[in-house]
Nucleic acid binder design. Sequence first.
DNA 1: GACAAATAATTTGTCATACAAATCTAAAAT
DNA 2: ATTTTAGATTTGTATGACAAATTATTTGTC
Lengths: 243, 243
Amino acid sequence: MYTFSRVGNTETLSSKIQSEIEESILQKKFVPGDKLPTEKEMCEMFGVSRTALREALQMLSIQGLISIRKGSGIYVSEYNLTNVVKPMSQYLQMNLDDALILKVQELRKMFEPQIAWLAAANRDEIDVKKLEDNLSDFMKNDNQNADQQSEFDQNFHLTICEAAKNPIIVLQMAPILRLIPSIRTIVYKKVDAAKSEAIESYEQLLKAIRDQDGGGASEAMIRHLHGTEEYELICLNKISSKT
Amino acid sequence: MYTFSRVGNTETLSSKIQSEIEESILQKKFVPGDKLPTEKEMCEMFGVSRTALREALQMLSIQGLISIRKGSGIYVSEYNLTNVVKPMSQYLQMNLDDALILKVQELRKMFEPQIAWLAAANRDEIDVKKLEDNLSDFMKNDNQNADQQSEFDQNFHLTICEAAKNPIIVLQMAPILRLIPSIRTIVYKKVDAAKSEAIESYEQLLKAIRDQDGGGASEAMIRHLHGTEEYELICLNKISSKT
DNA sequence: GACAAATAATTTGTCATACAAATCTAAAAT
DNA sequence: ATTTTAGATTTGTATGACAAATTATTTGTC
């Protein structure tokens, strides 16, 4: 027997309001900086109570589409990149296990050499300066402090992404690179880090990017990532059959 | 003169509650499927009104962390991948202009050949079947219908990403590939699509993936992306000086 | 005792009202 | 013209009420 599908009544009022305002913003009926009508006005427009409207507004606010200023009003936000990166970042962090670590490594081996190449081509003086500073900080740093090491690691790679001058690459790689501290905690916990080797490959990488030597940068990145991978494999006991 | 920085009072009650619950979920104090305490209980626990609490809950709900069922209760959600992809997708869509289109193309040229390679190595029978179906649908299809063409385009590339068997790649590329229809609308509006050429390179790509020929797949992808790029460049008038 | 139906209790969704706190506006004072 | 001050506006939170959906309990029947 044919049954009619239920008419959308599970959707709450507030979520309907949320969708409507979201669409208005996406269709650029309001642009960043614009002030939306006051809560009272919008309540009248939508014909709902303040409760329902406010719940919708809070949703939009955590989405990063609007910012609500007490006593002032409701404004369309400049879309903050945090809101783009955070959900992906959160997802990866929540699902991080041995299998995902290997997938991260696979992805980095595929993409980062190309990114390094592009960085070598497009880097400006500021990028080079940042990389140099990062590296010298790292070398001065105490060997023992694993947290600082992985933070440096993360920053160095992120700076290379920025140097490539393709904003999408930064957005894509930021959530991946943010995993580095967690991965190191899981992986290198017992191994006392191959810092000297790391420094060597970082120096080669920096040199190639400074010299705008794309091939060199790519190769240095490949070497570096292969170096770190060895440790990961050992620690994750994935080559037990191979030794 | 030294001034003290303002103590965090701009943060609203509801957003503080949101953070706290979010953290609980991220730290796996509650796992997907778990039922949270009722609103009334949580109000007492946090010592706040239902108003404030509900606003926090709505935020968590649009984040995809919880789902609220009327009459039943509040449950921790299985983290839906839509919530990961959507913000990035939205961001790119909102900021899509000529410059970003070129960045998208740059990124695809860098990454997709490698993805195709990996797909050739890891594809299973289902992937091959999907690609074949996609392609045959495309060939049967009416030349005029640009929307269907770009939808096919998007699906074909997404299926290749899936065939690579690295879930992060899908998450990264989905927002990019979703732009294809918009890009085509902008770019190919007047050009009546190089469908025959496209079909040719798609067939090569499919063959290489079917044969698990990584190098072939990579090369076919490079040819394909270079093919489409020519049109883009012409349409975006970026090679005026070069001709 | 087992099962079905009816009833009651619980829980979320929405509304209305009230007041506090921050901000903005405009009048008043200098 | 500038600053100060007082008032109006706007968002933040609390409370109480009732509707609507679900769940739990009781009741009735066999």
